[in-house]
Design a protein around this nucleic acid. Structure first.
Lengths: 237, 237
DNA sequence: AAGTGGTCTAGACCACGTG
DNA sequence: ACGTGGTCTAGACCACTTT
């Protein structure tokens, strides 16, 4: 006799079955928690434990106070390529959208100077953008771009690929990149902008790009929903 | 007047302050939940919500039914290198350990054939290993290795670097790698082996390695604790 | 044997999103 | 305005770890 699984895990399975039975797919909404709790004869607390389990597994997601939805397929993403987010998304049959939240010229603080190799207080562009796939906000991106060689960038439309602009307008192109990434909870502003609770699971991704003579081009960091992304990298070693 | 943060977030901050004040560091144990709940004048449920928040942020972790502990620093890891886990860990001032959970010769199932390019039912080595840093189990690793060119591998001690064995004993060395990774909940056996609850946040990492003539060498996947790892990759583009 | 974390109940109020 | 998700209480029992 194996001991029986806890109720919330049984409930998890019932929910999976129910979702399949009802043929719910990408971005479909689940019924209200109170409805589900009574349908499966349990408490809201226990139901929410089962929902949280499925959220951790990436089966469903929630959007602040709006309810629970079925998670779309992960987006494949190769951070070593520079073909740009919008192209990527379209290649995978979905609709991308980018909002520029803010753009400004700042003076490099110490941490950015350390990362980039620039002097402290060097002028640098800072863009904050929010990116969607099929109208679900997936990530917040911060770009810090060396203005050297692309002085007019701030005046342009930055709702598409920055790399495309840099390449086509300024002939700037990355030749090497340093990439870091790790799971990290989404908190504060970032969580708010993505419409999730503070503490939601996320993925942090950071890129530092240099041109062919080793000059610093861009520092970028991105905060993704944990269930939105699959990273693919090919390396020679 | 901003609205005040929910109690569990205030509690989160109190816990952070308390941890600092008490000078708790890597792997130190927190007091029992009931003790903490009464110390901070709240319910166990609310306290656990605050603890879960800190767990998501990677500040503390739990080990099945043993309690809550302060999370060590993340391990930096470059999957494009093949210097091996044990060397990595030592370079970062910690003590590695590897347990071989199982090793067997299997016949490649369809999914592995698809991934590797081998025929279905080709014989292939399968190793399952559990790896520790400072006696905390951080990951479960599955290696599927092409026996061609390393027939005697199963008889050797696999508690150190497999790559080192392949290189030193068989002159096999990867020339290119395809890497995939994404956040994924730890469930079932994997969660059990790592001593965490099913549904705990984790990181999935997969590598396919080929030699210099494009021959399949190894398929490997790894399930890491979400707070254990920082990935670093350098790419030319 | 005692204590702990894991699970669960049956309520409640509030703030926010939606209609 | 209403319904919803987010938060919170004050208990309880069980299974497992530790003493």
């Amino acid at each position: 006799m194996g001991k029986s699984a806890p109720m919330y895990l049984q409930l998890r399975q019932q929910l999976v079955d129910w979702i399949r039975e009802k043929n719910l797919t990408s971005q479909d909404k689940l019924p209200a928690e109170r409805i589900l709790a009574s349908k499966f004869t349990t408490t809201r607390v226990t139901l929410r434990q089962a929902l949280a389990q499925l959220e951790a597994e990436g089966v469903i997601f929630r959007s602040n106070r709006r309810g629970w939805f079925v998670t779309p397929d992960r987006l494949s993403y190769d951070p070593s390529k520079d073909i740009g987010f919008n192209v990527y998304v379209q290649q995978q049959g979905s609709i991308p959208r980018t909002e520029t939240i803010s753009k400004e010229l700042i003076l490099a603080p110490r941490w950015l100077a350390d990362k980039s190799g620039l002097e402290v207080n060097t002028p640098i562009f800072h863009f904050v953008r929010r990116r969607y796939v099929d109208e679900r906000a997936l990530l917040i991106e911060h770009n810090y771009i060396n203005p050297e060689g692309c002085a007019g960038l701030m005046a342009l439309n930055t709702d598409d690929s920055l790399w495309q602009l840099l390449r086509d307008q300024y002939s700037l192109q990355p030749a090497s990149r340093n990439i870091e990434m790790y799971p990290q909870a989404l908190v504060d502003d970032t969580a708010d902008l993505l419409g999730v609770n503070t503490g939601s699971a996320g993925l942090y991704l950071q890129r530092i790009s240099y041109d062919d003579v080793g000059r610093f081009l861009e520092f970028d960091h991105e905060y993704w929903l944990h269930d939105a992304l699959k990273l693919v990298v090919n390396v020679k070693g």
